[in-house]
Design a protein around this nucleic acid. Structure first.
Lengths: 193, 193, 193, 193
DNA sequence: TATGAATGAGTATTCATTCAT
DNA sequence: GATGAATGAATACTCATTCAT
């Protein structure tokens, strides 16, 4: 399995760095190879083409990202706490990896529609977690019954995403994680019975 | 003033059409020129370069978009109604111009960071309208005092933007405007005292 | 009509020179452009791609080649003289353009099967001239009736082609045209009643 | 002697198959190695480089081809019969090995000039057989004295080669061997006293 | 103003060959 | 002898922009 070989991870990590530092359109394959410490041709032993590096990067990093959120939230008692944990974990993880934050919030969005569709596939797992928490909240009688699942999902994800993007565009100059509580408060109010 | 000459508008309208139909990366200057019925070189009499077409396009279209929202909202009595009007007008306008919706929600986001910063500048006027309504809501004692203006702005804009993007990505197959009321409800709940 | 613009011919002539001097596989588009005195991109205003340069080259040069042979042969009185004229004109023309001889006999044969099929199309006009002369020879009772047209065509073209190729491979060190008479003699004998 | 080890022949046979099936330019060393059932690197224990595979292939297969022709022709009584046998054996052998026919008539000609010069070396043995038969024909007073040996050789080889190439390009759809008699007739006529 | 022919910089990918095991 | 992972050189084509007319 190629994904477990050390060079696979080396190349993905190099890609994150190179893209964060140079921007999507100035990230040539040769630059990524150099940063990864391999020959240009070696890239193609592990990835089908340049786009495959980006998709794999997103799947790999986002996979870990979502897994962490799944882990943290399941241990909580109720929907309200779970939602807070989700927001905090979301913010925390991106705060801890500045390069990744730049890549996911800014650079990867410059990719073409096709790549963005693949990225959306990966995000579905995240949206499922949100749906699950909201459903629990409804059962716990914390949230209103009549909520439209899609709209709720869009509000939560849209708010978090916009918040992180603004923070990245302001060069990550303020503390993102500390905003989790207030974002949580607004969302819970918005959904409450 | 070049902006009032007919070819200026011709070129911008051609750009919207071409980008909506072909996607950002397949929208060459020559294609836009052809659709606009002018020679390639003529483009450069009206715009500094290709990026300038896109920025101008966004300024022009978004200017009208925001103006309309300003007009509609000022005539309303209170913050709650103004917010509903803002959401409805936002959704309505993009529903009425499918090409523009594709361009603003999907294609223009593939531009580089620099262009996106300029786009953000244009959006400031829109965010100012949101801020103003929220401030009124606080004064009217409808919304909580301690709200962080930036976070509120991000929640509102993030939610609307995510909602519209999802609708565009689903090929605009359902009615967007009819979702305004529920989105409004969630946001107002989220901010209420 | 692009084919009549001066740059079209410039590029084709440059291609013949570059290919004759460097060989098919070392004839980069940029080298041809440089020799033609135009920018790389200009090539693509006149030709669809690299292969199109080669096909056009062959069509253009071979077109003239065959036309000349058609002209010279029609003025002759009988099949025997026509055949001699054909052979002489064939040899003469390639003797007069050493670069073209190298390109048609050696370099262009390295192209892929697809290109070679297109080249064969061009040759059909030449083979038709041969067929016509042979048919006349049969009518004049100079040649045997039972001859298989295809085999005759293959003998004549095969002999001429092999003769020219050998002369080119021997670096054109001897006089090709002076061999026309003897080749003619062998062929006429071969077909005679 | 490497040439007698089993892998040597394995690789050459694999090369013929791969080239016949995929064409010269799609016949990568790794594909040949796979078909031969050896590792890529193993190829280089038996051949100096890729070109060496092709030259060896031609030497090996053509060696057998010419040997067979030498055997068959020597047993015949006179030049006329020998020439017929040569033509028949030439056609027969290529008819019996369709892959080899494709490789020698079409694919190997796409190689560069250098390789073709080496291929010509191998052919000298074949041309010597032709020369010998023609000389015998002259002695037997069957053929004219004044014939130029090189031109005769070119006529015979050119005719046979063109005939086989046409048959291969027509996808070997008709019987090649049955054309031997008429080809023979034309050539003998062409050389006769 | 308007034209459109000409420019030329910039880059992903393949594949013959090597060499440590 | 045998392997196969790693190497890295080499090149056609696009398209934003210019400028002579």
């Amino acid at each position: 399995m190629k994904k477990n070989k050390p060079k696979y991870k080396q190349i993905i990590d190099a890609a994150v760095e190179v893209i964060a530092e140079n921007g999507y359109h100035s990230s040539q394959v040769s630059k990524i190879a150099k940063k990864a410490g391999v020959a240009d041709g070696t890239i193609y032993l592990y990835f089908k083409n340049k786009e495959d590096i980006l998709v794999s990067l997103f799947q790999n990093k986002m996979g870990q990202f979502i897994e962490k959120i799944e882990q943290e939230t399941t241990s909580r008692q109720n929907a309200e706490e779970k939602l807070l944990t989700l927001i905090e974990t979301h913010f925390e993880q991106l705060s801890l990896d500045h390069h990744l934050a730049i890549v996911t919030q800014l650079e990867l969005r410059q990719s073409n529609k096709e790549l963005r569709l693949k990225i959306n596939d990966v995000l579905k797992r995240y949206l499922a977690v949100i749906d699950q928490i909201v459903a629990e909240g409804v059962e716990e009688n914390l949230f209103r019954k009549q909520l439209d699942a899609r709209l709720v999902r869009q509000m939560i994800f849209g708010t978090l995403d916009e918040t992180v993007t603004n923070w990245v565009m302001k060069d990550q100059r303020y503390n993102l994680t500390s905003q989790a509580k207030e974002v949580h408060s607004m969302i819970v109010h918005g959904l409450s019975t």
